[in-house]
Nucleic acid binder design. Structure first.
Length: 922
RNA sequence: GCCUCGGUGGUGGAAUUGGUAGACACGCAGGACUUAAAAUCCUGUGACCAUUGCGGUCGUAUGGGUUCAAGUCCCAUCCGAGGUACCA
């Protein structure tokens, strides 16, 4: 068998593809378009590991497949190159983030090119490139210059709002805006000063500056968005995060909450992602109800989704941050309340969460009056009520809500049953919606669903409440107190009035600074830049968050070199949207939500033709590492094999996976890596040192990182590509394991040898036989189906089977092998290209046509009929050829044959399954 | 706690959606070639029993159910992964 010279082949074709610009794609309106997109990577210093390319390989297969199918395929790649790690590195080393970013990008590109992807590198984008971020800034300006009109249900230019204000004031304007926006008349508007107008408009702008409670990370010296905080720690670096009030640039994503929710119905995204976005948006239907405070003018407004439990309310609770706290606290309680509120303020988000099980709270001294029973109910303050959700106050129904229940038990407050089906224990409430309402005045006898409607009706009638929809979604904080991000194109007038930098001054490029730390005064790093001002008026010092550039980059690929627009009209009309988007599910509530938001915004402003940018999304699973362990006897320089470890008191240590093959440690190599190797001894089993293993996240510190470069060197890119697909379904997370890669390599070598005799290329010109055609067409069908449904792992198996079969019958016919090369090309492009050329073509295999499927070869020439005896399938009778006109005849025949077969068997009961027989497809 | 997926040989995983479970690959065992090893090729490989009769029994986390027929559908339980969390 001839060797398959993968190293030579892969080098040769990668050069050819680059030199001949094979993968460059034109905005060619004659062909139907297909846009295959990968989530662009953040170029980290560690380079690619084998987990990264999984998605890229799958999408590359789809891209190549679609190209064979006659589509004009856009398949670009770029880099999300602003971000924290480069800046952290800069702080430590003083190296400019741009420098390290460039080094990392070069390495990524080299690694990606070695894998033979069909990316059109001429369309590469980098978010940190001024020619790119000038358009990120431009979009920011546009968002700043817009407001959300609830009547038309879309974003509109702020000018439209201004003319409305000039005419009628803001009375009757239904818009998304700051909650505390006063109603003003046109007269008042006209009397406003410039500053007042600007401040007023900020309440409406979709990008706005406002005093907000933010997630502040002291260690990173910046604010973080909700999705960047995990369990009270920063996602990057794992530093504690606290709540802090400060003026911040924000984006009014809440204006789009409903449309972001509704849009999910129209896109083919994985259900878990949609579910996560739904939960994140968190729409809930309910009502707001006012509770009058006894002997006072104040009212407490609460939001509830369970107005049917209204008569179960026995107390009320305010958030510590609630504005009502001061006015409702009585003189006696002042000290206690003050202490509690201070305490709540000083605790970090993390502390509050870890403390969730401990019930805490304090009585204000005030009472509210239940609107229906007129009873006096105490008003408490507790930190389980969140200031940021609903009204920051709740009506507590201890019988139906666990938190209220715990609180009531702790403070010995009454608990009223309001549903006949409620079953309370000493420790649990029951939120049932099963039974009928009891003890509830006019709601008695209704089901909870009926009672909710009836309740809303009643409070509306009495003008003490209204139907209300609430969202969990918060506006997105847009400023970051960091250096390595897009500067926000805003400068400030003398009175502190924010002004947009005129578009002709974009891009506003990042200035050079001497150090990447906050200034002595605590300002962001940009405060260090000399002359960071527009005509002497200081620029905004914070930069944009990581998600800014990634929220629209997919449009830039359509027209990446356009110097006049973010993307040309023609390009947008042609490419429209992404047909196939591949990436990780970790971006569900970050990038994947923000980018939908920006898309809807751009759509509203008439800049694009779609309001969802990705028709189909596929999540590739995460590839975990398989860490290997050696076992050292505690206190000794002695290592024992895994099977013997139970005999000793041992310590498990990570060992570099490159020293381990099939769980057997290369003892000599391991010895070399130890400092005092001469004193080290090893206890083996069966002359081998066996390692233990564990599945963990792939990371440098666990010594379990498998680098694709090594595998490409050893087996070739084609083998690695097919092996990664062979590993299992693309969506599944799985540990990396190189053990099976030999099988795939053998397959490619076998395929190579179908077209070679010894080292000489050889195909025959004979007519293909029916069995040969059957193998080919079976594979055509399989590849086509699998590329559409993305079950790429089974395709690799199908290739192996087909190749084995062809080898067995020594088939080397051109008519069979030429189409097979085309079928193989999306998966193993280098070998396909080489064979394609050898078989006599002088164009690239990417320009080939996908072989046409001829069903006739796939029809069975025999049909099997099942014979059931006593409920078990006992036999199958095989007969007949597959001709349509014989169908009926055969069915009759089937029954006859079955009867005949049964003769002499004397069965007790015979069931012939008609469904199956009828269903046999001819 | 809640939501969403999952649980199939020694391992990764197939199974046309209700029709002979375990394709394909790894691993393992045996054989061929070799002085030998590696490489390569061939054969076997779910478990148990019978293997001088070509077979039988049990098997898709567990327990029930529907059906002539269940890995697949229904109910309950257990376990694992991911998401989310005082969201009223």
């Amino acid at each position: 068998m001839a060797e398959y010279p993968f190293r030579k082949i892969e080098k040769k074709w990668q050069k050819y593809w680059q030199d001949e610009k094979i993968y460059e794609v034109k905005n060619d309106a004659k062909k139907p378009k297909y846009y295959v997109l990968d989530m662009f990577p953040y170029p980290s210093g560690a380079g690619l590991h084998v987990g990264h390319p999984l998605g890229y390989i799958a999408s590359d297969i789809v891209a190549r497949y679609k190209r064979l199918r006659g589509f004009n395929v856009l398949h670009p790649m770029g880099f999300d190159s602003f971000g924290l790690p480069a800046e952290q590195y800069a702080i430590q080393t003083g190296q400019h983030p741009a420098t390290t970013t460039k080094i990392n990008i070069d390495r990524y590109k080299e690694q990606l090119k070695a894998l033979g992807f069909s990316f059109d590198w001429s369309r590469e984008v980098r978010t940190s490139d001024p020619s790119f971020y000038r358009w990120t800034q431009w979009i920011f300006s546009l968002i700043y210059d817009s407001w959300y009109n609830n009547e038309t249900n879309r974003a509109e230019p702020i000018d439209a709002l201004i003319s409305k204000l000039e005419k009628d004031g803001n009375h009757g304007i239904d818009a998304c805006c700051d909650e505390n926006t006063p109603v003003i008349s046109s007269d008042e508007w006209s009397k406003f000063s410039g500053l007042q107008r600007a401040q007023f408009l900020l309440k409406y702008r979709l990008a706005y500056l406002a005093e907000t409670t933010v997630n502040w990370c002291p260690a990173l010296g910046t604010v973080l968005s909700n999705d960047e905080v995990k369990d009270g720690y920063s996602e990057r670096g794992g530093h504690p995060v606290v709540q802090k009030k400060m003026p911040q640039w924000s984006m009014r994503i809440t204006a789009y909450a409903d449309r972001l929710l509704k849009g999910l119905e129209s896109i083919d995204w994985p259900e878990p992602i949609k579910e996560m976005q739904r939960n994140w948006i968190g729409k809930s239907y309910g009502a707001e109800i006012d509770f009058q405070v006894a002997d006072a003018t104040e009212k407490i407004t609460v939001f509830t989704t369970r107005i049917d439990t209204l008569f179960g309310v026995t107390f009320m609770v305010l958030a510590p941050e609630s504005e009502l706290v001061n006015s409702l606290t009585t003189e006696d309680q002042k000290e206690e309340v003050f202490k509690y509120v201070q305490d709540a303020k000083s605790r970090s988000e993390r502390d509050r969460m870890s403390d969730a099980k401990n019930v805490s709270g304090v009585f204000t001294g005030s009472y509210a009056i239940h609107p229906f029973t007129e009873e006096k109910i105490p008003v408490y303050i507790a930190d389980y009520v969140l200031a940021g959700y609903g009204t920051g106050a709740v009506m507590a129904v201890p019988s139906g809500d666990q938190r209220d229940f715990d609180f009531a038990k702790h403070f010995d407050l009454p608990i009223t049953i309001i549903n006949e089906a409620q079953k309370l224990s000493e420790t649990t409430a029951d939120a049932t919606k099963a039974g009928k309402i009891i003890n509830s005045g006019f709601l008695n006898g209704l089901t909870p669903a009926e009672a909710i409607n009836r309740g809303i009706e009643e409070v509306t009638k009495r003008k003490i409440g209204t139907k209300k929809v609430n969202f969990k979604l918060r506006d997105a904080i847009f400023g970051r107190q960091r250096y390595w991000g897009e500067p926000i194109p805003i400068f400030y007038e003398d009175e502190g009035l924010a002004q947009l930098l005129p578009n002709e001054n974009l891009p506003l490029e990042l200035p050079e600074i001497n150090e990447y730390l906050p200034t002595a005064a605590g300002d962001p790093p940009l405060g260090r830049a000399d002359g960071w001002s527009f005509d002497g008026k200081p620029y905004e010092l914070s930069t944009m968050p990581g998600w800014a550039g990634s929220s629209w980059y997919f449009f830039r690929y359509m027209d990446p070199h356009n110097a006049n627009e973010f993307c040309g009209k023609k390009a947008l009309e042609y490419w429209q949207d992404v047909d196939f988007y591949m990436g990780g599910s970790e971006h569900a509530t970050g990038h994947l939500l923000y980018s939908r938001f920006w898309t809807k915004f751009l759509y509203d402003r008439g800049l694009i033709t779609v309001d969802e940018y990705a028709k189909k999304l596929v999540n590739q699973g995460m590839i975990q590492g398989r860490s290997s362990f050696v076992y050292r006897v505690k206190g000794e320089q002695r290592y024992v094999s895994a099977g013997l470890k139970h005999k000793y008191d041992i310590q498990a240590l990570h060992v570099d996976v490159s020293l381990v093959e099939k769980d057997v440690l290369d003892v000599e190599a391991f010895k070399k890596s130890l400092p005092n190797s001469s004193e080290t001894s090893f206890e083996l089993e069966n002359d081998k040192y066996l390692c233990g293993w564990e599945i963990e996240k792939m990371s440098k510190s666990k010594y379990n990182v498998v680098n694709p470069d090594d595998l490409v060197q050893e087996y070739g890119a084609d083998t690695l590509r097919m092996y990664e697909m062979f590993l299992g379904p693309i969506e599944a997370s799985k540990p990396w394991n190189t053990n099976g890669i030999d099988g795939v390599f053998k397959f490619l070598r076998k395929f190579w040898n179908l077209l070679h005799v010894e080292d000489t290329f050889s195909v025959s010109e004979g007519e293909a036989s029916k069995p040969e055609l059957k193998i080919l067409h079976g594979l055509i069908k399989k590849v086509a189906e699998d590329c559409e449904t993305l079950s790429l792992n089974t395709t690799v198996s199908a290739f192996m089977v087909a190749t084995n079969e062809l080898q067995k019958i020594s088939c080397n016919k051109r008519n069979i092998l030429e189409p097979m090369i085309i079928l193989l090309s999306p998966y193993a492009p280098h070998i396909a290209e080489e064979l394609w050329q050898k078989i006599g073509h002088n164009t690239s295999v990417v320009d080939a046509e996908f072989p046409e499927l001829d069903d006739q070869y796939l029809l069975e020439d025999t049909i099997e009929y099942p014979i059931m005896v006593n409920g078990k399938m006992r036999a199958k009778i095989t007969f007949g050829s597959n001709d349509d006109k014989e169908k009926i005849e055969r069915e009759t025949l089937a029954n006859e044959k079955i009867q005949k077969w049964l003769e002499g068997k004397a069965p007790k009961k015979v069931i012939v399954v008609p469904k199956k027989i009828v269903n046999v497809v001819v």
